[in-house]
Design a protein around this nucleic acid. Sequence first.
DNA 1: TGACAGTAATTTCGATTTCGAAATAATACC
DNA 2: GGTATTATTTCGAAATCGAAATTACTGTCA
Lengths: 406, 406
Amino acid sequence: MPRRIKSKHQLVATLDAELLRRVRAHGGLSRMQLARELKLAPSTAGIYVDRLVREGFLLETETTGRATAGRPATSLVPNPDGGRFIGVDFGVPNLMATVVDFSQRPLRQSHTTLRPADSAARILAKIELAIEEMTARDPRPVLGIGVGVPGTIDPVTNVAVHYEFTRGWNNVPLGARLTERFGVPVFLENNIRSMALAELWFGAGRGLRNFVCIGIRSGIAAGVVVNGQLLHGAQHRAGEIGHWVCPVPEELAAHPPARRQRGWRWQTAAKLEQVASLSAIVATAQRGLKRNPKTSLAGVKGPLAIDDVLAAARDGDAFAASLVRAAGRAHGWVAHQINELFNPEKIIFAGPLADFGDLFITTVRETARELGGAGCDAVIVNSILGQYNGAVGAAALALHQWKPRR
Amino acid sequence: MPRRIKSKHQLVATLDAELLRRVRAHGGLSRMQLARELKLAPSTAGIYVDRLVREGFLLETETTGRATAGRPATSLVPNPDGGRFIGVDFGVPNLMATVVDFSQRPLRQSHTTLRPADSAARILAKIELAIEEMTARDPRPVLGIGVGVPGTIDPVTNVAVHYEFTRGWNNVPLGARLTERFGVPVFLENNIRSMALAELWFGAGRGLRNFVCIGIRSGIAAGVVVNGQLLHGAQHRAGEIGHWVCPVPEELAAHPPARRQRGWRWQTAAKLEQVASLSAIVATAQRGLKRNPKTSLAGVKGPLAIDDVLAAARDGDAFAASLVRAAGRAHGWVAHQINELFNPEKIIFAGPLADFGDLFITTVRETARELGGAGCDAVIVNSILGQYNGAVGAAALALHQWKPRR
DNA sequence: TGACAGTAATTTCGATTTCGAAATAATACC
DNA sequence: GGTATTATTTCGAAATCGAAATTACTGTCA
């Protein structure tokens, strides 16, 4: 007789949640399929499902056309009215929020900006405002809140431990604060990791057990999924590839090189973030304006923004395009390193460069293939989830942890 | 992040096996401690322990001096006579074998060499011979065999899939072959990963949940432990950092550089393995003999071996020492990258360079600290397990999977 | 068209496992 | 000797299993 390690308590505690997760992931499963997936006796699966149906969290749906013999399965889907979850994701310039229903469909979204000068208190206030906005004029209960936070967090105490680019952002008791304010469970996660969760549950990572999501915004970080689970590291600081010391594509080097080495340059001090993040690209563009008088970027009023560079590249501006391509080379190197180390099924790029289109990702692929010799096993793709990516992942974080109280 | 149900077949196969693992790890646990660790009711823990004692796999030991009030706990330890396990680890030049008893104490070890020209069949024969030698003149039953194999393996089918440096080493049904021959369960693992297992269970990784073990032999690879489990990757090919494209320390560059860049050099094509593996170091030493007439290495007869270089470095030869230091720099860069990506508790170096002493590891630490700016969170250490490292890990692999049949 | 075989999902219903709380055991400290 | 404290065992209750019904279909053949 096979013995289970999970005690009754632990099993009961998580079985409801796990069952709901599977149903959400597949969008409709029968009792038998659930029993097989969770390795439960059919009778046990039945007991749980029946209870969740009775409580209004699952709906039994009519079986759609089958052609197989045998009693048709009754499909179970999450009841959209089971409750709502809120997700917030913020980074240096943007704060995104979303509400999703119980079947994880987004109901509403909002977007505000944060200023680099904003204090921790100000950011907290803006988060609370965004959450209120999401719950306004909708009587259905909110069951949980997820927040994607830049920097390191402690998912046990729900404290935002540190973020290097916001003053005073140290040991902010974000979880406690929001729980107190809204009276529902709050879950924190690092924001690149919540992007990875979004990929895992809705995006290019659906159904995969091993993939890496690389988020390129003002910083660069990786969310790593191993065996279907997020990698956190000893101090929840895993994925900081922005600090990787990397080769520098010619075009992105701070000073023109003395001598070309097949288009790359090595500097001891070059961190990936200072080379191929959005802010680094903008800075390089700014520096290069004089040397590239023909570029359409010269006509931009005020300080350059990444959107200017991307728009110019899209319109065929050679200088802007060369910068995008150079960033693609740097990230191709990253993809190669990650592929060799993790051997993931996919490497997913997220952020404005990914939303931008083919020029970037094609260069990434080419570079990774070149460096890999035999080729790169991992499929390299752009995220297709768009900019609410992190917020949706954060909402799903709360949604996926939630379980009915027994 | 999904808290996954450890259902019966998933993470922890059976309570019996898990219980034995815990007892081995702690070297003596009471029923209560086991119940707490495994989150079982005390009564349940009691049932399992009693049965294992009855069957002769656990021994109840006298309680050693305590000072606490309350009924003293009866400590449980594995019965050394519960059975023996054999571990084999082979790489390009060496084949190591060991037998351990049921309490994972090594009983005997052996060492043979393989020649690069050896065919797959010849290697298989040598493995079988080594195993026989281990079981000879000892009537106690062998319960399992673990093998650390270079290259990729499939732990499900127990096939050695591929190894680039051995001719004909493709889809070798090593597991089936040995099971048939010896009639016991056989487990395969990649050999760097079995080194990591040895560290996890006996070495510098004891008690840690997140660490990385870097093995430097004729190739370079990493065994990664995340949440107490080995990382395998989608095709069981994770950890191939030997293929990483890396900066090249001056001293190890194939051609003297045109211009120094703070002691490093970047080449698009430089793979870590071609720069800082044992064979690369030997090759560089050989190449550098002419330019360094004063080195004691010039006096070595025949082709250089890595031991010559290490011995010379230990004796104060400046050229040899500079090569060791340069390898340390390269691996310091590796440690930095790994630290940022995984945020492990430790980074453990294994192989002759680690056995060699401080010169190497100190340079690694310094370089990692420099590159990390704020410093490197992970503790960087040498393995202290010596060269039977992988064999012991392989034996433990079998030992830890084993469970009494019910 | 309607019995009937075939098939697969679900339920039913004891059997088994595991739990949880209370009882018991074995010590230290007073 | 009594009390406090912790480990282990006891024992009824709850969870889960597994195999055997039962149900609800499809397809086939008279």
